[in-house]
Simulated assay, not measured.
Amino acid sequence: MPALLISPHLDDAVFSCGEWLQSHPGTRVLTVFAGLPPDPGQRTDWDAQCGFSSAGEAVRARREEDRAALALLGCEPCWLSFGDSQYGATPTVDAVARALEAELERHAAQDPLLFPMGLFHSDHRLVHEACMAAWRRRPRPALMYEDALYRGIPGLLQERLAELLRQGCTLTPDKEMTPRAEALKARAVQCYASQLRAFGPGGHDDTARPERRWRFDARPDAASAPQQEDDR
């Protein structure tokens, strides 16, 4: 069945759902923060750690990394033009929600939607909130996935589950048995060489741990929590 998976950055989908993607070829992976910033010549600390001389070089190279990784998994990349928070031009939740709603219109109502729980990073929280807004307007079967790397922060996942429950979202672990594909996912993860360079030794170990997704039921008026301001 065709699916739409929403990724905050150009690596999050594979880091968090690489094995699921491998078992669902043809999934459309839409990355929200994949656009060039207003000043493509700027150089942030993160891009410097990744080995780039400018934001423009970083975005173009990261798109090629994403294309290569998703090709290994048999999935289709799609990139929105929003710039991530490190470039100082964070969009509103409503602007992202409208863009996501336009993408949902391309899919049948029974096509599933996967999106991040919104752990820790402000960009991830914004994408989660925008996905919830778009989903309320275009409801369909949906799953939240645990944001790789951040889900390993002690206590964070439990706090997020409790927060979502208070907002009216009841989450249940997804029971779909996805075949393990550790070797293929590891190859796909390695495609994001620039990001792995900045994470350093052991910094992406969480990508090798079992993936987890959550089915949810939500009140139509379920509200999202305010954004948290954290850096990548």
Rank of each mutant, 00 (worst) to 15 (best):
225 A>K: 10
24 H>L: 01
3 A>M: 10
38 P>L: 11
34 A>S: 10
198 A>L: 13
132 M>S: 04
43 R>E: 05
194 S>L: 12
30 L>I: 00
231 D>C: 14
143 L>K: 04
37 P>Q: 05
185 K>R: 14
169 C>Q: 05
73 L>D: 08
161 L>R: 15
87 Y>K: 05
164 L>T: 02
189 V>Q: 04
70 L>F: 09
227 Q>H: 06
199 F>K: 00
152 G>E: 12
75 C>E: 11
172 T>E: 06
78 C>R: 14
12 D>M: 05
196 L>R: 10
54 S>Q: 09
109 A>M: 10
198 A>C: 12
182 E>N: 06
173 P>D: 01
41 G>R: 13
178 T>Y: 02
10 L>E: 01
152 G>F: 03
229 E>T: 13
146 E>R: 11
200 G>W: 00
174 D>C: 15
182 E>H: 07
60 R>K: 09
90 T>C: 06
150 Y>L: 13
8 P>E: 08
5 L>I: 07
61 A>I: 11
168 G>I: 14
62 R>I: 13
170 T>G: 04
79 W>R: 12
20 W>E: 02
181 A>P: 05
219 R>F: 12
22 Q>N: 08
194 S>P: 07
186 A>L: 08
101 E>P: 06
16 S>K: 00
164 L>Y: 09
8 P>L: 09
223 A>M: 10
56 G>Y: 10
184 L>I: 02
125 R>L: 11
23 S>T: 04
206 D>R: 01
179 P>C: 02
187 R>C: 01
93 V>W: 04
196 L>G: 00
82 F>T: 00
46 W>I: 14
67 R>Q: 11
21 L>W: 00
152 G>V: 12
65 E>C: 07
220 P>M: 04
231 D>F: 15
125 R>N: 07
189 V>K: 00
78 C>K: 11
76 E>T: 15
123 D>N: 13
1 M>F: 06
123 D>V: 14
226 P>D: 15
192 Y>K: 07
98 R>K: 10
100 L>P: 00
20 W>V: 07
28 R>H: 14
139 P>Y: 01
70 L>Y: 05
25 P>W: 03
204 H>Q: 09
132 M>P: 02
91 P>Y: 02
2 P>A: 05
61 A>D: 07
157 L>A: 10
50 C>N: 01
195 Q>A: 01
69 A>Y: 05
72 L>K: 15
105 E>H: 04
106 R>E: 15
103 E>A: 07
196 L>T: 01
149 L>R: 07
92 T>N: 10
95 A>E: 14
213 R>C: 12
7 S>Y: 13
212 R>W: 03
113 L>Y: 11
138 R>G: 10
141 P>C: 06
6 I>L: 08
212 R>F: 03
80 L>S: 10
173 P>Q: 09
92 T>V: 07
74 G>L: 05
74 G>E: 01
37 P>F: 07
158 Q>D: 13
213 R>Q: 12
57 E>N: 09
37 P>L: 12
48 A>K: 13
31 T>V: 02
209 R>E: 15
228 Q>P: 02
84 D>L: 14
85 S>F: 04
5 L>Q: 06
179 P>K: 13
63 R>N: 04
47 D>N: 14
164 L>N: 03
75 C>I: 09
125 R>C: 11
103 E>S: 05
159 E>R: 15
31 T>P: 01
29 V>L: 04
138 R>W: 12
169 C>N: 00
211 E>Y: 09
192 Y>F: 14
